[in-house]
């Protein structure tokens, strides 16, 4: 069964000339984990915002969990979808952890008695209950994203959309978030749509869609996509930071070692380079 179905979608931002999507089609199966990759500006965020009804298409049809997306049904559709965005700080509405989780429940007019139960369960689920009274300034990025996930879990959606939700996190924070997503996908069979530049995150998916200027250029299982030989950079996956730095240094005419350097290796090499000069 398809939980998301996009038919002949056409969309463009009012103030822009170019069409973002032109006769775009995509089906997402219930329970599937779909990764969307593509370079910056290829339309990934725009696509998921269209699915959530945060943007309205010019033409075409979007159906989510059997509900056709219209201005009247948009709140019903949104209640099926939970979205986590990139910047952990800019989606934290509540004054503290439990308040933030409750925000969505308050919007959905859930009675307070049930709210108390759901907030606690959701926070225990993401291992953040002991931080219930913490303000966002006292939390790491990874903890904030876990709180954002709790806010979604409490609302019991069918689909979780992650729009580069782990891109600002350190490796541990990223692992913790992905661990929760994996569990939600495998145990509760939630459909996951994750936009990512991270190859590890993408390889968790059952299916990867590569987007290029509003068109699907590849649609396959991760192993196939990553073995296509095409440079990962070209399809919008980030090489590690040290590799990017190396590339920039070469552009500056600085000789760099050929072998792969870890972050620590890079630091060592850099200060050795400096002290030689």
């Amino acid at each position: 069964m398809d939980i998301v179905e996009i038919k002949n979608l056409t969309f463009k931002y009012p103030q822009q000339e170019v069409q973002n999507f032109n006769n775009f089609n995509l089906k997402i199966k219930k329970g599937e984990w779909l990764a969307i990759i593509g370079h910056n500006g290829s339309g990934k965020s725009t696509l998921v915002r269209l699915i959530d009804g945060l943007l309205a298409p010019e033409s075409g049809e979007i159906t989510v969990s059997g509900i056709k997306l219209t201005p009247e049904s948009v709140w019903d559709v949104r209640s099926k979808i939970g979205m986590v965005f990139q910047n952990p700080d800019n989606q934290f509405v509540g004054a503290n952890v439990e308040d933030d989780v409750a925000f969505g429940l308050e919007n959905a007019a859930i009675p307070r008695k049930e709210m108390l139960i759901r907030v606690r369960q959701a926070l225990e689920r993401v291992k953040m209950w002991e931080f219930a009274d913490h303000e966002p300034v006292r939390l790491s990025g990874g903890q904030k994203q876990r709180v954002a996930l709790a806010g979604i879990i409490a609302l019991k959606p069918e689909i979780i959309i992650l729009d580069e939700a782990t891109s600002m996190l350190d490796p541990e924070g990223r692992q913790a978030v992905l661990e929760i997503i994996r569990e939600l996908n495998q145990v509760e069979h939630l459909t996951v749509i994750s936009i990512t530049h991270d190859i590890d995150e993408a390889s968790n998916a059952q299916r990867v869609v590569v987007l290029d200027d509003g068109k699907i250029v590849q649609d396959d299982i991760p192993a196939k996509i990553f073995s296509h030989g095409a440079s990962l950079v070209k399809i919008g996956l980030e090489p590690p930071f040290s590799e990017k730095l190396k590339e920039e240094l070469v552009k500056q005419g600085i000789e760099v070692p050929d072998e792969y350097l870890t972050k620590e290796g890079m630091v060592d090499w850099l200060w050795q380079l400096f002290s030689k000069q």
């Binding site: 945060l54 709140w75 949104r78 965005f85 910047n87 509405v93 969505g104 959905a108 609302l155």
Partner: peptide
Amino acid sequence: DLATAMEARGYR
């Protein structure tokens, strides 16, 4: 960002 996130979480 915050406005988008609030709307996505059903704030109306």
